[in-house]
Nucleic acid binder design. Structure first.
Lengths: 250, 250
DNA sequence: GCGATCAGCGGCACG
DNA sequence: CGTGCCGTTGATCGC
């Protein structure tokens, strides 16, 4: 396809805020928060109505180069090239796709009012625990969900049978080291404000060995959260307290 | 475009591992690590040679639904629909795009041997500090880069003039709470193995107020890392030690 | 394969 | 705006 023709199609799409799809051979330069160079190859470029700019190769899930929405996009015809440039300020960034060949350029006005509904998120699981805190521990009284801390927020804040404060951090997938330190931070801050004894419970489907080790060192607790996702919601199958050194008896 | 015709184009692309681009009205269902529903709307679907599957709306940088590479993709013609299904096991996931209309379906064999070269990464900055450790502190001797710890690795491990061990963690952007706890973890582990005094220095362009507070509480140190990216590499302009409570005198 | 970490992370919510 | 944090995070590298 002629580069001039391709430019006309892209320009029209830009002014009408339509989705533009350009397939061709291009190189890509980026300069902003970092800098990158991608030498010539055949790719697909998507330009969306909000200014989102994506360069896709024929492999890999993620776009190889991109520019977030709300910037400015311009086209420029060179000697033997069509240059499409996407810029934004704050942060100052420039993305440039230099096309030497365009196989196809097209645009589409896409009507789409729908937004995604997701189930099985952390918040979703947290809600379910809120409804049945006994699953975590018998006699637990929930005081608050998403309690704002000076920095960050506690998923679930509760009180146990003995009157101790309990901080529960819920994770939808395997917990690692940073999840333990995150919980520790919350426990520290709560312990500083109220000076009652404060327990911390990490609630996740799994925990890595080293994270479990660190957790026990800090006298925090772990609960295995067994859940399933059966449309259109998540459901907790069980929450079991991790017995310290259970494996030693097997 | 006729759905049968669209299916033929997609099938041919799949068997030849070409990039397929389908534009049309579809709804999308996902079930796997989580679950989601996206009701009908007009979108662009990309299917790549490696099986990557992407559903894009006309706004937003990220794909609204997707399936990572290496799965299986099949098409099925229904009464008035074309269903494209992408599945994978481990984790078990199913993504289904149900097309009621297809405006355009096309495929492209894309030749592309290039991979992205990026500058201004953390590793890049770490390398530069390795070459001139004096920028961080006069008299610093680098012992090791990317020292493997039992879990994780230290960006730069050094010794100061007085013979203390120094753990340096480099960040390419504003450091927050989790970067402080990360450094603390490394310092703790080093301190446990060698029982010399161990200092920890966080080196980043900025640090958030609460992170700075926590850092000082833990007797760790912060250095402002001022760098610029001038193709094709990064360059450090300066590294300045954060004076404790400097702001108090202003 | 799991585990830990980086990423131009993106996106959202809240102050 | 910055700050914190979740995400179907993805991608990479080491064990």
């Amino acid at each position: 396809m002629d580069l001039t023709e391709a430019q006309a199609i892209v320009d029209e799409a830009l002014s009408a805020r339509k989705m533009a799809i350009i397939v061709g051979e291009c190189s890509v330069k980026y300069h902003g928060r970092a800098a990158s160079k991608l030498s010539s190859g055949e790719r697909v470029v998507l330009i969306k109505g909000d200014g989102s700019f994506l360069v896709h190769q024929n492999s890999g899930l993620a776009a190889i180069n991109y520019q977030p929405p709300k910037g400015t996009i311009t086209t420029k015809l060179g000697e033997d090239t069509l240059v499409i440039r996407a810029t934004r300020k704050k942060p100052a960034e420039l993305l440039e796709a230099i096309f030497s060949k365009v196989f196809s350029a097209s645009s589409f006005s896409l009507r789409d009012d729908s937004s995604l509904r997701v189930f099985g998120t952390e918040k979703n699981l947290s809600d379910l625990i809120m409804q049945k805190p006994d699953l975590v521990e018998e006699g637990l009284t929930v005081l608050n969900q998403e309690s704002p801390l000076s920095k960050g927020k506690i998923d679930i804040f509760a009180r146990d049978k003995k009157g101790n404060s309990v901080v529960i951090e819920v994770k939808r997938r395997t917990a690692g080291l940073k999840e333990v330190t995150q919980l520790q931070r919350y426990v520290d801050e709560v312990g500083k404000r109220l000076d009652t004894k404060t327990r911390g419970i990490l609630c996740a489907p799994k925990i890595t060995p080293s994270a479990l080790h660190m957790l026990e060192e800090k006298n925090l607790e772990f609960c295995t959260l067994d859940y399933e996702i059966h449309n259109p919601s998540a459901k907790i199958r069980s929450i079991k307290k991790k017995q310290k050194g259970l494996g030693d008896y097997l």
